[in-house]
Design a protein around this nucleic acid. Structure first.
Length: 346
DNA sequence: AACACGGGGCT
DNA sequence: AGCCCAGTGTT
């Protein structure tokens, strides 16, 4: 066992007490609320989550309520947040906790990590914040803070195990949850990826990277490959009498899994010819180009050509959705963008 | 270890 | 245009 308290975590906690933000998931340490916020915050910024978390909590105030919802309802509320497998696993986890564990979340890192959608980070965060387990979760912020504190120059992701081990040395038994949140606040507010505010940092006396003047260069990363481009054509098939459009449900697994979409072509590396694209159109007439949009996914960029036309009957697997109902459906951002072309087309 | 998996905001 | 973000699960 290495010696603890080589760093002044007390100074960090004092800074945290003076600077912490009033965020809705810091109002209560109820495990359900902590868990819900941590899942939403996976790879998602605080401002974005602020637009979803209060609505979720109002609609489903406890894990039993969320467990009783339908998956389509959960996906509809999640629409726009991205990484939709999170919503499916969130619901699966809620059902498991509500129906097989009498509504109680497990209280150890190991048991939490067995639940759907809870990985190493979320297990530690929930354990530390809701159950006062003395552990330090590793997220992007704490990874960066740790790399700088110890001046680790090994590039990510190879440095991850070392950073994980070093971060655990920062643990303090008194206030594990506050320490985790203090480190994350430090990472987002002071120890930022570019132009860190080192002079204002409560840990500057301990920071090896600051002393060496290399804080801004850490953590080092290996270069990522450029995103390929894919092309698709989507069809807005409009019903004359009420303006309803045809939608269909995507497969449960994979990209935008379980969400709704406009009918259209597959997405391929080459642009579509008219003739090839029309083979994927719903039964309808008068197709004309309404717009072209670019949408960036995690690992490719999509160029989506949007065409409008009129249709009188549904096609295979599709259904009519009235414009006034669109906001309550599980439509990912890509297709919300596409549907905006409809209004221009009168 | 590498990849799939959204979307928004920053520089 | 590239990088980042309160990551997880699969291969």
């Amino acid at each position: 066992m290495r010696p603890r308290h080589t760093h002044d975590m007390q100074a960090l906690l004092i800074w945290y007490d003076a600077h912490q933000r009033r965020l809705p998931w810091r109002v209560s340490l109820d495990a359900y609320r902590v868990w819900l916020s941590e899942v939403m915050l996976q790879q998602t910024t605080v401002p974005t989550v602020l637009g979803y978390y209060p609505r979720f909590l109002e609609r489903w105030p406890n894990v039993e309520a969320l467990a009783r919802a339908s998956q389509d309802e959960v996906l509809a509320q999640w629409a726009g947040l991205g990484y939709y497998s999170r919503a499916r696993k969130l619901h699966a986890c809620a059902k498991l906790v509500a129906f097989e564990r009498q509504g109680r979340f497990p209280e150890t890192v190991e048991a939490l990590q067995k639940l759907p959608g809870i990985g190493p980070y979320t297990a530690k965060a929930v354990a530390a914040i809701a159950f006062k387990v003395n552990t330090v979760p590793m997220d992007g912020n704490i990874e960066r803070v740790t790399a700088r504190l110890f001046a680790i120059t090994t590039p990510l992701p190879a440095a991850k195990p070392m950073l994980q081990e070093l971060a655990q040395r920062l643990a303090v038994p008194k206030r594990p949850g506050d320490l985790a949140q203090a480190l994350m606040d430090l990472g987002s507010g002071i120890c930022t990826p570019t132009k860190p505010a080192c002079p204002a940092c409560p840990l500057k006396k301990d920071c090896q990277a600051f002393k060496k003047g290399i804080a801004e260069n850490l953590p080092a990363r290996v270069k990522r490959a450029a995103k390929p481009v894919r092309h698709g054509v989507a069809f807005i098939a409009e019903r004359k009498k009420d303006g309803a459009v045809l939608l269909r449900k995507r497969p449960e697994a994979g990209l935008l899994g379980g969400m709704l979409e406009l009918p259209g072509t597959p997405w391929q590396s080459e642009p579509w010819t008219d003739e090839a694209a029309l083979a994927f159109a719903p039964s309808g007439t008068g197709w004309r180009q309404a717009g072209l949009l670019r949408h960036v996914f995690t690992h490719f960029t999509l160029m989506l050509e949007v065409r409008t036309g009129s249709a009188t009957r549904t096609s295979q697997g599709a259904f009519w959705a009235k414009p006034e109902n669109l906001s309550q459906l599980a439509l990912p951002t890509l297709f919300k963008k596409a549907l905006k072309f409809m209004a221009l087309d009168v």
